[in-house]
Simulated assay, not measured.
Amino acid sequence: MPKVIGGSLATHREQVRERVFGALREQLYGRGFESVTLSGVAAAAGVGRSAMYNHFPDRQALLVAFVEAEAARYVADLDAALAGARSPAERLAIFARIQLRRLAEFHLPPGQALAGALDPQAYRRIAAHADPIGDRLTAILTDGALDGSLSGDDPAVLAGLVSAALSSRKIVEVPAAELDETVETAVRAVLRMVAPSTVPLG
């Protein structure tokens, strides 16, 4: 019987998951999803292959579980950061900055590439984790529209535009020494994108 880590079965399972997710994170960020194998992650995590398969029957199940855990942690971190902001514009700047930093770190294939790598059910489960993040962005834009500090245009439309801008890997694919300045440039551009209009259009 394998040794139980942490003194209880529940603690053992959680610690095994953390070790596996840590190993997977390094492989995803370093090489991308296509290079990931269960045996390779198990070896890097110091977990037996049988234990690995007991937790995750295949690499898609592993990726979905990892994204679910990462998304929960990310949303908690995002909420904590937003809680200290004094205005919708400040909250939007924080949101954009965190999103871009996350994009710079996270090396899963984007959009259709990820859809092609996973079966439809697994992809839908992963895509569902974008909803809480999008809800927070829409709420920021709605608050800004209500107090006049941001554009009064439809917040749902603006949220789609901002999300698209913040999901472009070209923004963050720069030398590490240039990343801080690049992120701040992008944050300023997002704020201008949703600034209140002072000139009538059309």
Rank of each mutant, 00 (worst) to 15 (best):
P120V: 06
A72W: 11
A69D: 12
R31T: 13
R102L: 14
A85Q: 13
S8C: 10
P110R: 15
A80V: 01
E18N: 06
L179I: 09
A71D: 07
A42L: 03
Q60H: 14
E68Y: 04
T37M: 07
P200I: 11
D58P: 04
A42K: 04
V183T: 02
V67P: 02
L201M: 13
V64I: 08
A44L: 07
E70S: 11
P155C: 10
A195T: 10
R25A: 09
A72Y: 08
L191I: 02
L78P: 02
V75A: 12
S163T: 09
V199P: 01
S149D: 01
D143L: 11
Q99D: 01
D153E: 15
G134M: 13
E105H: 11
I98G: 00
Q15H: 09
L146H: 07
Y74S: 10
R19Q: 10
A127P: 06
P110N: 14
R59D: 07
H107E: 13
A177W: 13
L78I: 09
A96H: 00
M52Y: 04
A113Y: 13
R59L: 08
E70Y: 00
V199I: 12
P109A: 13
T138Q: 15
G22N: 05
P2H: 11
E90V: 09
A23R: 04
T142G: 09
V199Y: 01
L62M: 13
R101C: 00
S87Y: 04
G30R: 01
R192M: 13
F56D: 00
E90F: 10
L201I: 15
G40Q: 07
A96V: 01
G48S: 13
V41A: 05
G30K: 02
S197A: 14
E70G: 05
P120E: 09
A42S: 06
A127V: 10
T198A: 08
L114N: 05
D77M: 11
V47K: 00
V172L: 04
Q121G: 07
D119G: 10
A80W: 12
Q15K: 07
V174G: 07
R49S: 03
P109R: 08
P132D: 10
A61K: 06
G116E: 15
D58S: 06
R86H: 07
A115M: 09
A72H: 10
A165Y: 06
G160N: 11
G111V: 05
A122F: 08
Y29Q: 09
T198H: 14
L158H: 01
R91V: 08
L114T: 03
R25T: 13
L166S: 01
R73E: 10
V4Y: 05
L100G: 03
V157C: 05
L201E: 14
L166Y: 13
S151P: 01
A128D: 08
V199R: 03
A43F: 11
H129N: 15
S87P: 04
D147V: 11
H107Y: 11
L146Q: 15
I5P: 00
D180A: 08
D58V: 00
A104H: 05
P120K: 12
Q121Y: 15
A130E: 15
I171Q: 08
A177G: 01
R188W: 03
M1F: 07
A44Y: 03
D153H: 15
P88F: 12
D180L: 12
I5K: 02
D119N: 15
D135T: 14
R13E: 06
